[in-house]
Design a protein around this nucleic acid. Structure first.
Length: 204
DNA sequence: CATGGGATTGACT
DNA sequence: GTCAATCCCATGC
């Protein structure tokens, strides 16, 4: 952090950014930068989830698990998947609406050495090409669940240089069985560092 | 209190 | 292509 003297709060995406329709936020987040400590990466892939459709955890209503999803926007929703992986989501829309954007892939940007150490020295292109991989690379765990994305340990800043006008490729969401036909997955066109399978047209 | 499923990954056939 | 690892929590008896 000492190498970056600029004030973080001045450039962090504000609460109002997240307090919008979740499918819009999912698209706008591609190209933005996630920070955790010295580690950071450019978002290459997102998915939107909303409590109006069955794939969203909040579809079942208010429970201990879904209280954060249904709470105010601009907070981190982190949960464990398959007993092993921590998945990072940004809570969106108004307080009372269950909606979040799942961050599925990053282009590694800051603290590559730390990422390599935490990920076990895989090729750099594979450091953050999946939702469980990127949380491990960033050093995130469930401890950041229900923390602020504006002034908490995890922060997201606006689109990096070279990503202001990023072209998006939409596809269906990955790894779900319910509401599997909604095209709510968004990838940065031309970037191979996204999770498999690549959506049609990614490289064209 | 017991059971089962899941927004994944990596290793293996 | 298949499959197991392994945690949280919703559901049901």
């Amino acid at each position: 952090m000492a190498a970056h003297p600029s004030s973080p709060s001045a450039t962090v995406l504000p609460v109002a950014f997240y307090e919008r329709p979740v499918v819009q936020v999912a698209q706008d987040l591609v190209g933005c930068v996630v920070h955790h400590g010295a580690a950071s990466g450019v978002i290459l892939e997102t998915e939107a989830y909303h409590d109006s459709e069955a794939a969203c955890h909040a579809y079942v209503g208010l429970t201990a698990r879904t209280s954060v999803l249904l709470g105010p926007p601009a907070r981190a929703y982190v949960y464990r998947s398959y007993g092993i992986h921590a998945l990072l989501n940004a809570v969106c829309e108004a307080d009372g609406v269950g909606a979040a954007v799942l961050i599925r892939a990053l282009a590694p940007l800051g603290d590559l050495a730390g990422m390599r150490a935490r990920r076990g020295f895989v090729p750099d292109a594979r450091l953050c090409d999946g939702p469980g991989k990127l949380t491990q690379a960033l050093g995130l765990d469930l401890e950041v669940h229900d923390t602020s994305l504006v002034d908490g340990p995890v922060r997201i800043t606006p689109r990096a240089s070279g990503f202001q006008d990023v072209r998006l490729v939409a596809g269906v969401r990955i790894g779900i069985t319910k509401a599997a036909d909604l095209p709510w997955r968004f990838c940065a066109a031309g970037h191979r560092g996204v999770s498999r399978p690549w959506p049609a047209g990614l490289l064209t």
